[in-house]
Amino acid sequence: MSIQHFRVALIPFFAAFCLPVFAHPETLVKVKDAEDQLGARVGYIELDLNSGKILESFRPEERFPMMSTFKVLLCGAVLSRVDAGQEQLGRRIHYSQNDLVKYSPVTEKHLTDGMTVRELCSAAITMSDNTAANLLLTTIGGPKELTAFLHNMGDHVTRLDRWEPELNEAIPNDERDTTMPAAMATTLRKLLTGELLTLASRQQLIDWMEADKVAGPLLRSALPAGWFIADKSGASERGSRGIIAALGPDGKPSRIVVIYTTGSQATMDERNRQIAEIGASLIKHW
């Protein structure tokens, strides 16, 4: 058993032996400061991975655009179909130039040979490839079927209504393609630790998130040596930015963190910096 498999397999085991986890309101002070700095709403939640207890939250039940963070949920739905014998990670999917949409750094290189379902999930999560996400959405029946999958998990909040890139429109008060921090954190925890997916599929999902290559300026920039993080970021119109993550010290995840912001006029660099500073406060007061 690899170190990674050891880590995921023991998450339920550690729940019975973990020390009490204490919240630190200092992080919420930073979240509120980020709102002031960005001139935008910020949603935040910090969840204990083992118990599911909410440690801190700010606007946990307000809607925010999901942006590309939905791609983790999408690959969770794909893995659920794999577990049920309805899909194979090794199945190759062929597509054409007409299928390519904006920001497809991986799929645009494989027009001649296509990509496997496994490769598409990797591209969608680690590189946020939009065509990969659309191709995967097609395999499960489209955005409405992803919403149905989430409903069956008990998440009646999170919804996907459109495809890439239209889902990134982020119109104020538009509930399409949105979630709430509390709903996203709970759903992510179920995917990573619950019985919905097999152990192998849970491991695969967290491996893809751990290999994320496009979230460096966010929480990863504040991470001390030896800490673990598996994450997925997102960005969209109207100053929207977000990240969902499982992270913790000693090389294993122990908390879920979800951060969303929307409605800012700030630059992408400034949005990144504010999220990184929230992460730094979280780690300092861990």
Rank of each mutant, 00 (worst) to 15 (best):
S2I: 15
I3D: 10
I3C: 12
H5G: 09
V8L: 15
P12E: 07
F13Y: 13
F13L: 14
F14G: 09
F17I: 13
F17S: 11
L19D: 12
K30N: 05
K30I: 08
D33A: 15
D33Y: 15
A40S: 10
R41I: 07
Y44G: 01
K53G: 08
E56K: 06
E56D: 09
S57C: 09
P60L: 07
R63C: 03
P65Q: 03
M66G: 00
L79I: 03
S80M: 11
S80C: 10
V82F: 07
A84S: 14
Q88L: 15
I93Q: 04
I93A: 03
Q97T: 14
Q97G: 14
Y103F: 10
P105R: 05
H110Y: 10
G114A: 14
V117I: 14
R118S: 15
D129R: 01
D129F: 00
D129W: 00
A133D: 03
L135V: 12
L135A: 05
L137C: 03
L137P: 01
G142E: 02
L150C: 15
T158V: 00
T158Q: 00
T158G: 04
L160S: 09
D161A: 03
R162K: 04
W163V: 08
E164N: 02
P165Q: 02
E166F: 12
L167S: 06
A170D: 08
E175G: 07
R176H: 06
D177M: 02
D177T: 00
M180G: 09
M184I: 10
T187V: 05
T187M: 05
T187N: 10
L188M: 10
K190D: 11
K190E: 11
L191H: 06
T193R: 14
T198A: 10
S201L: 05
S201G: 09
I206M: 15
I206R: 10
W208F: 05
W208G: 02
K213I: 09
K213N: 09
K213Q: 14
P217R: 09
L218G: 03
L219G: 01
R220G: 02
R220K: 04
S221T: 12
L223Q: 03
L223A: 08
P224A: 04
A225P: 15
D231A: 06
E237R: 06
S240N: 11
S240G: 14
R241Y: 06
I243H: 01
I244V: 13
A245V: 03
A245T: 04
A246H: 02
P249N: 06
D250L: 09
R255D: 00
I256M: 04
V258I: 09
Y260R: 02
S264K: 07
Q265H: 14
A266P: 04
M268N: 06
E270A: 10
G279D: 02
S281D: 07
K284N: 12
W286S: 00
